[in-house]
């Protein structure tokens, strides 16, 4: 509603620019539209078509003689959805997503509050470290953690072994997928905290001082000040960070793929890995496409929510 409000407002201010440049505007967006249609629209169309065609591993049949791969309606979907493997994978992905998003946001918020509370020199140091962490590619960070958690000479095993009563020497973290996915969680959270902490810290500094001061003077405890003043102020930012985290963690790939040397065992499969192994690994293009469509459907709600949020803040205007 605010969106239309401002747009009409602007139109009143400069009607000249609005009307005269229309043709030019179309010329300007033409290349972008061509790219959007070519590299996104077409593949999207293709993935939906693939999901509706009979499973056929021959690339030739899919392209050069379309007649041999007949449409089978929703049969691919019923097949994928009636496979218990899919549901196991989906459940694992959901648990993984909730855990990772929750941990990333909680830790990120904690670090943001801490940044707000410490002396300047401490803040500068911590922010610098976070920036470096933020910049490390996920492929590289996974390899670092793979090395840190290595069973033979990994530092983590050595460190845990120092704790009295704990024997971790030679412990293999990747034999049990649950432990392996815990290491993956460590990589994901390690990489996600900087963005969340630094954005939230920037958000906290925007909160007017006197509002927090007033809350304190009125006898609010630090916890009350946090829940009643800080959180409501950060709400829009938190929603955006949360949706982005959900999208990223639900589609987690590199961290698992690299942690398992490009061959994740069944116990490590999340939806993204499952789709890739089926569709690209085993050349079951139609099954893979079907899982891909299901994956997008799962995220559709989150996407719509995110974009509505952007429009509500007026950023999309």
């Amino acid at each position: 509603m605010t969106a239309t409000g401002t747009s009409t407002g602007r139109r009143v201010v400069s009607p000249r620019i609005g009307r005269r440049g229309s043709g030019l505007a179309y010329l300007l967006i033409l290349p972008a539209v061509v790219v959007l249609v070519g590299v996104t629209g077409w593949p999207l169309y293709k993935i939906i078509m693939l999901s509706l065609q009979r499973q056929d591993s021959g690339k030739f049949a899919l392209f050069h003689s379309a007649g041999t791969t007949p449409f089978v309606g929703l049969r691919n979907f019923t097949r994928v959805l009636s496979d218990s493997a899919f549901w196991t994978v989906l459940e694992r992905t959901l648990v993984f997503t909730v855990l990772n998003v929750g941990l990333s946001l909680a830790l990120g918020m904690g670090v943001a509050l801490l940044l707000n509370r410490v002396s300047k020199w401490a803040r500068v140091i911590l922010v610098a470290v976070l920036l470096f962490v933020w910049a490390v590619p996920s492929t590289v960070s996974t390899q670092i953690f793979y090395w840190l958690f290595s069973n033979q000479y990994g530092v983590v095993n050595w460190l845990l072994d120092r704790v009295p009563g704990v024997h971790m020497r030679g412990h293999d973290w990747f034999a049990d997928p649950h432990q392996g996915l815990a290491v993956v969680t460590a990589v994901v959270v390690w990489g996600a905290v900087p963005l969340i902490a630094i954005s939230l810290h920037a958000g906290i500094t925007q909160i007017p001082r006197d509002v927090l001061e007033a809350a304190r003077v009125d006898g609010a405890s630090p916890w009350q000040a946090f829940t009643r003043v800080t959180l409501p102020f950060l709400r829009p930012l938190l929603i955006i960070l949360m949706t982005l985290s959900v999208i990223w963690d639900f589609g987690v790939f590199n961290q698992i793929w690299f942690m398992r040397n490009g061959h994740p065992e069944p116990g490590y499969q999340t939806v993204g890995i499952y789709m890739y192994s089926e569709g690209v690994g085993s050349s079951h293009y139609n099954t893979g496409a079907t899982i891909g469509v299901l994956m997008m459907v799962c995220l559709l709600g989150v996407m719509v929510f995110y974009i509505r949020q952007l429009f509500r803040i007026g950023d999309a205007e």
Binding site: L36, V39, T40, W42, P43, L44, K46, I47, L50, K59, L62, F63, I247, F250, G251, F253, G272, M275, Y276, G279, V280, Y285, G288, A289, G292, V293, M295, M296, L299, V302, M303, Y306, I307
Partner: peptide, 16 residues
């Protein structure tokens, strides 16, 4: 488009 999981597009993209 920014929200579409890139992963899902790998299959059609590779075929195209």
């Amino acid at each position: 488009v920014q929200m579409i999981p890139l992963l899902a597009l790998t299959i059609p993209m590779s075929l195209l």
